[in-house]
Design a protein around this nucleic acid. Structure first.
Lengths: 342, 342
DNA sequence: CTGTTAGCGCTTTCAC
DNA sequence: GTGAAAGCGCTAACAG
């Protein structure tokens, strides 16, 4: 009896359990799922024993077929090596698990698949919801219609998108906070901006907007702007670019931790003192920013809260189109002994 | 006609396509799957048109139920925030996609689920294979039996495990290479070791072994050993610990990039010159190690090759129990102008 | 409270 | 070359 399902390919099915317990398959279902009909205590116990004895495991493919749902949420992301997205992904996976879902992750760079193909694949797998970390298709106003009624949420949105449910950090304010910190606490006056080209995050990028409005408020001129790739290498290249300026900016706001880290390397190699000659701050606040040298002062994205919201929203049958904005937190890191003031 | 499946919950099924094309469902199947029976050219065309017109998408849950396979590989990983595992995961996802599989990722830290529960869940989802990045269950000699015939591979193994198919870097040799580099190229004589406690990677850890055998070969004494957590924070703590030693070691071998990065921070804060006073090298070779300051000389894990092998092996019906070892590559990074010699 | 049963959408054997 | 039909394992009416 216990022979079946111990090793060979043939798994134990609900019918085996029913036979073993001397009940019908329906009752097994009621016990396994805790419903929808009540089961007598004695029967219940017998079924549990059978489940145990046979080491029964439900076949989720069959369940998904029957229910039209797979207890799975799809996440489409542009670059899962970016620590921000990596951390975000983990947080989402945790939140999803807490609701009994598993995450199916599709990295749109990992193949020549268009994002559209990834969506098709995920939908074919009966995902119950779709989270878009990228914007191409997410921003397509028609996209909602093509999802066959599966709820979807854009999880890294710079602002509202007509007809879509979106989540994003208060990026403009976050950027402005950093610029004010540089000016008011550290007295910097030539504040440069390093941002990624072909922004993944709105056009014009809200971080640019925050930078320039804060400068305007402060009565400071706009420092140089360098547009580069959204990567450590891009940040490094931007650093080389900035080093050509005379005078050097006395501070740089990098629009992502990754670029800031690359920038630091370029400045170090040139023998520039940080933050003595040039202060560097960045946007994201991943673990990597804390362990760079010097540690970066950042505005941190509220990853936990955004992840929770993403899962809550996508778990809603018909999420209301609306933008959900999350405030960012200034994290001052002061290895140089500069005053840890906000 | 085209109304169905445009938005509402009801998807287009094979029956709809068959009706539209005026054929049987079997023929639709033959066309969609390119077999197993031939289809007349004209019919073929008619079916393709129907597929197109109705925007048909196969239901992979149904397919998985019928076939007992889901075109999915499960990956169980201990810490997907570790850049090494993050990079490895991406590489595996790519290799899997190239073979028509998608990756289902389960982070064993992401909840109190035991690794065993994750396995059960993945198996219930009909995964075609299981990749273990962690070792607890993977090393269990009984584990193979509990997987119901699903192929499994340990992807981060320090060495052979009886009865299991395993993959891993040539860690002992990699560690020894780094130590030799420190001694022979840079003339270091007091080489410390920083390793993670409760190693994820064999006990005793092969890196320890490589470190001490290389020192023995070189006729050098063993420097201090600090055991810490496998994290940036752990590396930082180890750094503080090492700073208490007098004399300071003149080099440190950190068993992971992550710990090395933490260590660097501690040394920087103490005003130690790197690599002037203390050289730091590490094991992994992730992107983060390249952009630390100073950039780390490392031995790099051959992630691409290991990922490819992992997918190839797990895609084999009954993988032969054997260990597959991959040589590591020394990457010398010399920001200080020290000779870039191997 | 429990059993019977009709499918979910797909693949494939077996007839034609 | 094509169609009819039998399930894969599960859920949830519905009938007892």
């Amino acid at each position: 009896m216990a022979e079946r399902g111990v090793a060979g390919g043939s798994r134990v099915t609900r019918a085996d359990v029913a036979r073993y317990a001397g009940v019908s398959t329906a009752v097994v279902s009621y016990v396994v799922n805790g419903g929808p009909r009540p089961v007598a205590a004695a029967t219940h116990r017998r079924v549990r024993e059978a489940l145990e004895a046979l080491n029964y495991r439900p076949n989720l493919s069959a369940r998904a077929l029957k229910m039209g749902s797979s207890a799975t949420i799809g996440l489409i992301i542009a670059d899962s090596l970016n620590p921000f997205f990596a951390e975000f992904t983990i947080a989402i996976a945790r939140a999803a698990e807490a609701r009994g879902h598993r995450l199916l992750i599709a990295d749109s760079r990992s193949s020549r698949d268009t994002e559209g193909e990834l969506v098709e694949d995920l939908l074919a797998r009966q995902v119950d919801g779709l989270l878009f970390g990228t914007s191409t298709l997410g921003l397509d106003p028609m996209a909602g219609l093509r999802l066959y009624g599966v709820p979807s949420v854009l999880i890294d949105s710079a602002g509202p998108v007509p007809g879509r449910t979106t989540i994003g950090p208060a990026a403009t304010e976050g950027a402005a906070t950093l610029v004010r910190h540089l000016a008011q606490v550290h007295g910097r006056t030539r504040i440069a901006l390093v941002l990624g080209a072909g922004g993944g995050f709105g056009d014009p990028d809200p971080r640019t907007w925050g930078w320039q409005t804060a400068l305007a408020e402060l009565g400071l001129p706009r420092g140089p702007i360098v547009s580069t790739r959204w990567s450590r290498e891009g940040g490094y290249a931007a650093g080389l670019e900035l080093l050509k300026r005379d005078p050097l900016p006395d501070a740089v706001f990098a629009c992502s931790d990754l670029m800031a880290v690359g920038l630091l390397r370029a400045l170090h190699e040139a023998g520039v003192s940080i933050p003595g000659d040039v202060a560097v701050v960045s946007f994201d606040g991943t673990a990597e920013s804390e362990f760079s040298w010097p540690p970066l002062t950042v505005v941190r994205q509220p990853i936990q809260a955004m992840a929770q919201a993403a899962v809550d929203l996508v778990d809603t049958p018909e999420p209301t189109p609306a933008h959900h904005e999350f405030p960012m937190e200034l994290i001052v890191r002061a290895p140089c002994g500069c005053p840890p003031i906000t």
